[in-house]
Design a protein around this nucleic acid. Structure first.
Length: 481
RNA sequence: GGCGCCGUACCCAAGUGGUAAGGGAGAGGUCUGCAAAACCUUUAUGCAUCGGUUCGAAUCCGUUCGGCGCCUCCA
């Protein structure tokens, strides 16, 4: 079964095809850089990162563009408040955003263009719209005339005459929007045929998409909240100018919620990526986001984060057991005892991902797979040496899956150790006090003083530290609650 | 007010016509000094509500109730 994608434009799952065989042109709206990026931006970036990875895995050559809006009202506002230059502020937050993305194992896009570097392209695009009668000058502004584009509203399923906008001003239709904004005092500006000014918000994406990808894209995406007006307006601009479809597939991701409310900068209820990363490792954040379908909203609750932590911890513990066995025992047998599992893994993975990038299904089957692996590891009827070949095959197959999702591909021991370190830091615990208590408990156990040893164990549990007695000694780990 | 999405077990959540994935929590078991980890078993005749279409519906249509998003900057 070929890849099926839910297309916002048609409201249906459709078989994915590309304009040029073997090549995908994908554009996703990035961030407006006037502040630190939050976990909502992260979720969008992670989702499109995985989509891109999977398309590449499926054999496509993907050109992925993710823009930075570095000129906008809020950036200008911040510049005026801080006395800094607007572009200086946006440059700073672009750098911060790129660092955040790297921290979350998100690959940079093929192109990450900025609006301020594309003013001439924007001006000529607008000139084209004016000369075709789709835009008009109103004072120092240039507005798009939505009545000239018959299909206006086709993405968000709105009708032109239902659009309400109190600020009608010089607009011919209430829904007309700015392509170019005449300069106001205290604003950065560029020369244009219509006087000094700056681009409106929507035009940048139409222009930069065209420049880096051409007049028709295969995939255009972004957060659900961009469907109207942003993406609707992009369609209007691009299709009015080129008389051809702007994007063949529209993909919209769900939003991060906090207590059932959308997380957004304007509501002030957001977690920055930095803050989220202080609470949980990268893989936990990615896992949480990829645990549900990309189109649904996710509540960024403590309990969801804890659940994701437990799961990721479980997966890495299993991987750690595998690598410990593989590094300590010699392979004695070349029979694949996990043949069914190993051969079905890639098939299951593709089937799930081909169904509208169902990462939730992938994670569900990974859960089942890991249970079987643990069972296999624990199976005393099979000599350890006979397991190695099978486990190596498993690791090879798993790597294909995890390299697309970009989770569970760290070195297991290193991951677990850094997770513990993060946990201790967040709880203000010194590792030495734990090891001291554990040593004390081990002495008590040797002396068969189980009352004391159990008391120490309870004491550690109060600190959310879990004690585990294994054949090779006592270990400690995070006690998730 | 308009447009759109959603409502699945105690909780999170997949599932878009063929008889309810997965996870968390709970219960029982194997293991253990006891635990933990891991594994096994178990937890919705039921998918907000009422009605309809169908041989068959969580899935399609309509009603009611509830939640959310967009309509102004938003990933």
């Amino acid at each position: 079964m070929a890849l099926q994608i839910y297309n916002t434009l048609t409201k249906k799952k459709e078989e994915f095809t590309t304009l040029t065989p073997g090549k995908v042109k994908m554009y996703a709206c990035g961030v407006t850089v006037y502040d630190e990026s939050h976990i909502g931006h992260a979720s969008q970036a992670i989702i499109f990162d995985v989509i891109r990875n999977y398309l590449e895995y499926s054999g496509y050559e993907v050109t992925y563009v993710r823009n930075f809006t570095d000129i906008d009202d809020k950036i200008i506002k911040k510049a005026n408040e801080t006395g800094k230059d607007a572009l200086e502020i946006s440059s700073h937050f672009i750098k911060r955003s790129q660092e955040d993305m790297a921290l979350l194992k998100i690959r940079p896009a093929t192109h990450e263009p900025r609006v301020s570097n594309h003013i001439p392209d924007i001006i000529s695009f607008i000139e084209g719209l004016i000369s075709k009668g789709h835009a008009y000058q109103a004072g120092g502004d240039v507005l798009f005339d939505i009545s000239t584009f018959k299909e206006y509203g086709k993405l968000s399923k709105r009708k032109i005459d239902e659009l309400i906008n109190e600020d009608t001003g010089a607009k011919k239709n209430p829904g007309d929007f700015a392509l170019w904004k005449g300069v106001k005092p205290g604003e950065p500006s560029w020369d244009s045929p219509w006087g000094k000014g700056r681009p409106g918000w929507h035009i940048e994406c139409s222009v930069m998409a065209k420049k880096y990808l051409g007049e028709t894209l295969d995939i255009h995406g972004g957060g659900m909240d961009l469907v109207f007006p942003h993406h609707e307006n992009e369609i209007a601009q691009s299709e009015a100018l080129h008389d051809k479809p702007f994007s063949r597939f529209w993909i919209h991701n769900g939003l991060i919620m906090v207590n059932r409310q959308k997380m957004s900068k304007s509501l002030g209820n957001f977690y920055t990526i930095t803050r989220a990363a202080e609470k949980a490792p990268t893989d936990v954040i990615r896992f949480m986001i990829l645990s549900c379908h990309y189109g649904s909203n996710i509540d960024f609750m403590e309990s969801n984060l804890t659940t994701a932590s437990k799961r990721v911890h479980y997966f890495y513990r299993t991987l750690s057991k595998i690598s410990q066995l593989c590094s300590s025992v010699k392979e004695t047998d070349s029979e694949d005892l996990l043949k069914d599992l190993n051969t079905s893994m890639e098939k299951e993975f593709r089937a799930a991902m081909d169904d509208d990038f169902s990462t939730a299904k992938v994670i569900a089957f990974l859960s089942e797979t890991f249970s079987q692996i643990n069972e296999f590891l624990d199976d005393k009827s099979i000599k350890p040496g006979r397991k190695i070949h099978s486990l190596n095959n498993f690791k090879t197959g798993l790597l294909k899956v995890t390299s697309v999702l970009n989770i569970l591909n760290d070195e297991p021991e290193a991951f677990l150790k850094s997770f513990r370190t993060l946990y201790l830091k967040n709880n203000g615990i010194d590792e030495k006090e734990i090891t001291d208590l554990i040593n004390k408990r081990s002495d008590a156990r040797k002396a068969k003083d189980f009352t004391l040893s159990d008391k120490i164990r309870d004491e550690l549990a109060d600190k959310n530290i879990l004690v585990q007695d294994t054949p090779s000694g006592t270990e400690w780990d995070i006690l998730f609650k």
